[in-house]
Write a protein that binds this DNA or RNA. Sequence first.
DNA 1: TAACTTAGTGAACACTTGTACACCAATTGA
DNA 2: TCAATTGGTGTACAAGTGTTCACTAAGTTA
Lengths: 206, 206
Amino acid sequence: MQSREDKKRQTRKSLMDAALTLTGNGVNFSTISLREVAKNAGVVPTSFYRHFTDMEELGLNIVDDLGLILRKLMRAARQKNDYLDTLAQQSIEVYADFVCENMNYFYFMAQVRGGGTLVLRNAIRNEIKFIANELASDLRPISTFEKASDSDLALVSLLIVEAVFDTTIDLLDQIQTSPQQQQAYVENTLKKLRLIWLGASAWHSP
Amino acid sequence: MQSREDKKRQTRKSLMDAALTLTGNGVNFSTISLREVAKNAGVVPTSFYRHFTDMEELGLNIVDDLGLILRKLMRAARQKNDYLDTLAQQSIEVYADFVCENMNYFYFMAQVRGGGTLVLRNAIRNEIKFIANELASDLRPISTFEKASDSDLALVSLLIVEAVFDTTIDLLDQIQTSPQQQQAYVENTLKKLRLIWLGASAWHSP
DNA sequence: TAACTTAGTGAACACTTGTACACCAATTGA
DNA sequence: TCAATTGGTGTACAAGTGTTCACTAAGTTA
């Protein structure tokens, strides 16, 4: 037996999952119709309005959900280690694994990052900045960044997060064609991060 | 008076321009209908098929066109200078100016990079790699990269190009809200490139 | 138990979509 | 000059779209 609220939450999740399944199947979020989402969620089209006013609102909720999960995941991955290089490696591995097990979410993100409505694009930008800020505050105590200014540290963090996040579509497409290529992506991205970190260490020494 | 081929080329361009105008107005390329493109191009829907089989094929042609223009532009921008820092600065300024004057193209690119069909995504990936390769061969003679291996240099170049290209949507959205923010983007991106370049210089010195 | 609230239903609407088909008119090539 | 080629036209169709409205049935509250 389930309460009325539980049932509502359930169909609400069904609607969001339906949208994610569709994006994961290669359908662009912007082209997904309210009706198709409703059908895949096992509900009649008009029911959609009981949960969201819009496909955009549904999209915003997906961004929020993933943003929350992602921040928790990455913070946890970082707190295991404090030696920078293994920290970076483990973070990327954790990220790549999570991407592989939640591909639908990241196809959605890749699509919307550059192709959603302005509202949705801003929502994703905020998540990226949020994650970068958390990275910055985790990097702050590390000796390499002792003398770095706040704004410099913020820039380094943003560059790192963007370098990972904005190329996630490449990881996704690689996995689809040959799943064992995940490791190649990890190594490649790790090299990029080493480069950035190396640059950051040299930043304020003439 | 114009030949038959010229007329065909002209409407072909009208169709592509119509699609670009729509993407520039915030409409996602995936949602743009063949009919709407035809209408905006001043042609009847069925005429579309005389030029493209598909909206995807039209998109591929846009990618090709911009890719060609962009490679020329960036090579030219680089050949003016060989001191790395001013080279980077001028390149980004040239790029940002070009983006501002051809916003439609770059909204299209930002949308399709992560949200187009697999075929379109791969087309853009190839252009990015192409541009990165050209950058690599221009960087090769510079003293900073004398001792760098080919694959390391390729990685640096790819990171640079991605750092610029994948955040172009941020530039576009900033311009829309406050045009004078273009300079802020240039400075921010320039800092990122300095960081990367600094990392690259330190890459093989323990 | 009775009244109220509300998630989900189903029919209807005006509109847009991609594509097939027969057709026209003008440039092209012999 | 005459026939062939071909870019553009107009009609038609089945299918899908967002949103409206009155409705039902079941959980909630008093």
